[in-house]
C-alpha cells in the first residue's frame, strides 16, 4: 500500500512538473487556446472518436470473446459493426454538432450584446457595462459578450441538440453508416479475392 502511495505521488508530481515545464516553455500556445468554445471541444473529441473509437470497439469485443471463451465469435463480429457505427456517428455528429453549436453561440452573442447595452440590467453587469458604451471600452464590452455567448450559447446548443439529434443526426448517421459498411465490405471482398487468386 505504502509503495503504491509513493508511486502515485511521484506520478502526480511528474505530471505536474512536466505541465509546468510545458507552460513555461510555450505560454503563447496555451494562451491561444484560452478562448476555445464547445465547437473546438466537439471537433477534438470527434477526431479521437473517429480514429481511436473503432479500434477500441474491436479490442473490447476481442477481449470479451477471449475472456468468456465464446465459440461462435458473435461478440467479435458485432463489435465490428459497432466500430463502423462509432466512426459514422463521429463524422455525422460533428457536421451537425458544429453547425448547431455555431448557430447557437452566434445567436446568443448577438442577443447578449444587444441586451447588455442598457446599463443597470443584469446583462449589463455581466458585460461589465457600468454606464455608456463609448469607443474606448467597446473592446471590453464585445469581448465579454463573446465570452458569455460562448458558454451560454454552448448550454443552449445542448438543449437544441436533444431535438436535432433525432430529427437530423439519426437518419444522416444511418446514411454514412451504410456507406462505410459498403466500403468496408468492398475492401474485404477484394482482399479475399486477391487471396484466392494468389493461392
Amino acid at each position: 500500500m505504502k509503495i503504491n502511495n509513493i508511486k502515485q505521488q511521484n506520478f502526480k508530481g511528474d505530471v505536474y512538473n512536466s505541465v509546468t515545464k510545458f507552460v513555461t516553455k510555450h505560454p503563447a500556445a496555451c494562451a491561444a487556446l484560452a478562448g476555445s468554445s464547445v465547437i473546438g471541444q466537439k471537433v477534438v473529441m470527434s477526431a479521437a472518436e473517429a480514429t481511436v473509437g473503432p479500434a477500441m470497439d474491436i479490442g473490447v469485443g476481442r477481449v470479451i470473446t477471449k475472456v468468456t471463451n465464446e465459440k461462435d465469435n458473435r461478440t467479435n463480429q458485432s463489435s465490428k459493426t459497432q466500430a463502423i457505427r462509432t466512426a459514422a456517428q463521429a463524422i455525422g455528429g460533428t457536421i451537425v454538432g458544429v453547425i448547431v453549436r455555431g448557430a447557437c453561440i452566434a445567436a446568443s452573442t448577438a442577443l447578449l450584446a444587444k441586451a447588455g447595452q442598457k446599463a443597470g440590467t443584469k446583462f449589463a453587469d455581466l458585460m461589465c457595462n457600468s454606464g455608456k458604451i463609448d469607443p474606448k471600452n467597446i473592446y471590453q464590452f464585445q469581448e465579454n459578450a463573446s465570452k458569455w455567448g460562448k458558454s451560454i450559447g454552448g448550454a443552449i446548443a445542448i438543449g437544441v441538440m436533444l431535438f436535432t439529434n433525432f430529427i437530423i443526426d439519426a437518419p444522416f448517421i444511418n446514411v454514412i453508416n451504410e456507406k462505410i459498411t459498403k466500403a468496408v465490405d468492398k475492401i474485404s471482398t477484394k482482399k479475399s479475392e486477391k487471396a484466392v487468386n494468389n493461392g
Partner: peptide
C-alpha cells in the same frame, strides 16, 4: 489569465478525448 485558462482547456480536451474514445467504448 489566458495562459492559465488555456492550460485548463488543454486538460479539458485531454479529458474529452480519453472519455469519448476510451472510457465510453469500454
Amino acid at each position: 489569465d489566458n495562459v492559465k485558462s488555456g492550460a485548463g482547456v488543454i486538460a479539458a480536451f485531454i479529458g474529452a478525448i480519453v472519455g469519448s474514445a476510451i472510457i465510453t467504448p469500454i
